[in-house]
Design a binder for these strands. Structure first.
Length: 393
DNA sequence: TCTGGGGTCCTAGGACCC
DNA sequence: TCTGGGGTCCTAGGACCC
């Protein structure tokens, strides 16, 4: 038996560490993985962090903070395959693995201690296995609950392990900044601060009703639980066929702001095709179609429309978002970003389409299937709508 | 040449139904 | 004929996470 059965394993600077396996010559240099132009940092190695470089920082600021930083482009195929191998290593320890993202997971090792040893021993075994197999380091938090394990792994970084036994939970939690709690971002932290609540201990000693008045009913009671480390925190194993997504979407920031309707409608077509293609690959269709528009000043609005029937057809999604866009009646507003999202996803097999006699929808669905087939065979650059083909002079 | 892209969940008001 | 209460769906926005 153990009183700290939950492990939170978090890769250190995951994207950067994976990218550096190919470039060992750069390990002592400041390195970030990120986009170009208007992109942000996806991951920064610990050398870059000494300059104040962090995830989500705009690249323009990164270059100011650290002019000699090396920027590597993300290689998601490699990240995905390294992640899959790491998750496989976790499942050799316990079947109860809940992946949070490519680079972190919770493990319930309750059933493994007799075979493998105490949780802290398992944590060290995992760390050396991942280091040997993948050439990257990770940190592990060990605790009785999910939320405490998560905070412990952050404290353990980089390349360490921290165990927080139940008797030490409040001593560990209460001095922390409220912003460390899962679910407390910039806004909520500022809100709590106005109530004089700065540390986790402050939140713990505030009546639930008061918290709920400050931050809303749900979050208020949630924060109170987190502040005492009493969240239930049962794991939902993500092995095998995972839960279907509730929505799928794609958005894109223009390389420069635009008010050109042709450019915008063409981008909406590209995004609609991308989303619809992923939906068909996943075998889902959806009824609610949402347009997202971000203006040059970064204000963002959404407009959605729920259809009578679910679709996975590119031209139907494109037509819906184009109507929503035109209904905005924008004149010369410059847009920074547009996005397309489809919600209310259901398995494609449950959709029975009521085709209006003579409507050519059938033809569009078949055109999509032909595109999917050609894409699988020749790659995504091979097939695209005519309006997306750039003529070569 | 500040501020990505993929998501999830919550809130709140109004419509509509019983 | 003077006003209720619950449930669900839709829409829009916002906060948050990695």
């Amino acid at each position: 038996m153990t009183d700290t059965p939950i492990l939170h394993v978090d890769m250190d600077a995951f994207y950067a560490s994976v990218a550096l396996r190919e470039r060992p010559d750069l390990v002592d240099q400041p390195v970030v993985v990120g986009g170009s132009g208007r992109g942000v940092v996806l991951a920064a190695n610990y050398v870059a962090r000494r300059y104040g470089v962090r995830s989500a920082l705009p690249m323009t600021r990164v270059r100011r903070l650290c002019p000699h930083v090396v920027v590597l482009p993300p290689d998601y195929d490699t990240f995905t395959s390294v992640s899959a191998s790491v998750m496989e290593t976790f499942r050799e320890v316990t079947p109860i693995v809940q992946a949070v993202s490519l680079d972190e997971a919770f493990l319930d090792v309750r059933g493994s201690v007799r075979r493998l040893g105490a949780p802290v021993v398992i944590a060290e075994q995992l760390r050396s296995a991942i280091h040997d197999e993948q050439g990257i380091t990770c940190s592990v938090g060990v605790a009785a609950t999910v939320s405490v394990a998560k905070l412990a792994s952050r404290r353990a970084k980089p390349d360490g392990v921290i165990v927080v036994p139940p008797s030490e939970v409040t001593t560990f939690l209460h001095p922390l900044d409220v912003g460390e709690l899962y679910g407390v971002g910039e806004k909520t932290q500022a809100l709590l601060q106005r109530f004089g609540l700065v540390t986790v201990g402050d939140v713990a000693h505030t009546p639930v009703r008061t918290l709920q008045r400050a931050v809303g009913h749900h979050l208020g009671s949630h924060l109170h639980d987190l502040a005492w480390g009493t969240d239930r925190g049962d794991l939902t194993p993500t092995a095998g066929p995972h839960e279907p997504e509730r929505s799928m979407g794609a958005d894109e920031t223009f390389s420069r702001d635009t008010d050109d309707r042709d450019v915008i409608v063409r981008e909406l077509l590209r995004l609609s095709a991308r989303v619809a293609g992923r939906m068909r690959a996943a075998g889902v269709a959806g009824r609610t179609i949402t347009l997202k528009v971000r203006f040059a000043d970064f204000t963002t609005i959404t407009r959605s429309r729920t259809m009578s029937e679910a679709t996975d057809v590119t031209v139907e999604i494109h037509r819906a978002v184009t109507r929503l866009y035109d209904a905005l009646g924008l004149q010369r507003a410059r847009l920074r970003l547009v996005g397309v999202r489809v919600e209310g996803l259901v398995p494609r097999s449950t959709v029975h389409r009521q085709l209006v006699l003579g409507e050519p929808e059938h033809g569009w669905a078949e055109a999509d299937r032909a595109v999917d087939l050609a894409t699988r065979r020749f790659g995504s650059a091979a097939v695209r709508p005519a309006s997306l083909v750039v003529e070569r002079a």
